[in-house]
Design a protein around this nucleic acid. Structure first.
Lengths: 155, 155
DNA sequence: ATAATAAAAGTCAATGTTAGTCAAATAATG
DNA sequence: CATTATTTGACTAACATTGACTTTTATTAT
């Protein structure tokens, strides 16, 4: 455990709390002050160590009474499938291939029929039509990847 | 959940009352005094938390015996509300308002938690970020409208 | 009835309080 | 040395609070 920089220390501090209560709410400025770092370093720690790949969901609110909430979520068993699909999608994907992905997730019972239909409504080519088809495919890729990442956590 | 701001507290106070009787009538000045805020803060709370996208209708009357009436509308047995929501969305909608819509659909059991989360992933501002924020809000509007229209048809 | 006054609620802009972004500087690693 | 990770801070965006001013409605006085 040598060689620990301040980001690592903040990370383990937060994870220690999360071990008890699987959700915490922090004030960015308080944590920053506690560890004597600039507030934006907290964002760095969260971005690099508390993302969905690691099984954490993060929400926040600005303004008076603002907070950052970090929740530990359980990941589904076959995370690899999700990773593979995200790799397959890459930077852009057309409507036909997008449909195939959702269809196969439905067949594998990862999605219900209604869930699949809602997603299809979102990534449909009428919905996402742009002047530039390249852009359309890029947006579809981002939407699909975001949805797939959400599918990592079981309810 | 600690250290919330006063607007959140007023919000939950009103929602608590609304849980019993699905309509309430308040005197702005009374509520303001009760929570020791300026009266216009009540307008702020209503504007940000009790809009149609949250599933609430608000009426009011000024002058002596004036009041603000807040009514909860149930989205599940009110197809017209879908139309209202689509009108409300219009050409573009920002992420916060989009989230409110999905949240109220979840609260009214039109969507399951998983369905709501998948949609939120799709319309999240990170997912739909463009160079031009105007475009982002337009795409979000198209996606949401497409999903709402899909919700019209019973499974 | 009409006008004046009082009693509500509405609007809006200024200010305050948070968190987010981004890129430059620095440190660590291979 | 090159690359990646961390640290820092200036700037931005979002949300909340406040108060002066406006509008609407009801009541009272003439």
């Amino acid at each position: 455990m040598q060689n620990r920089n301040i980001s690592d220390i903040i990370e383990s501090y937060l994870k220690e709390i999360l071990a008890d209560s699987n959700q915490i709410e922090i004030k960015r400025s308080e944590i920053a002050e506690q560890f004597d770092v600039v507030p934006s370093q907290i964002n760095y720690v969260i971005k690099t160590r508390f993302n969905i790949q690691n099984g954490y969901l993060v929400e926040s609110k600005r303004g008076g009474g603002g907070y950052i909430r970090i929740a530990k979520v359980n990941l589904i068993n076959n995370v690899n499938v999700i990773d593979d699909l995200i790799d397959y999608i890459g930077e852009d994907i057309n409507a036909r291939k997008g449909l195939q992905i959702i269809q196969s997730l439905y067949e594998d019972k990862v999605l219900t029929k209604k869930e699949a239909n809602l997603i299809l409504a979102a990534i449909d080519s009428n919905t996402l039509s742009f002047a530039d088809k390249k852009i359309e495919d890029q947006v579809r890729a981002r939407v699909l990847i975001s949805i797939l990442n959400r599918l990592r956590c079981k309810e």
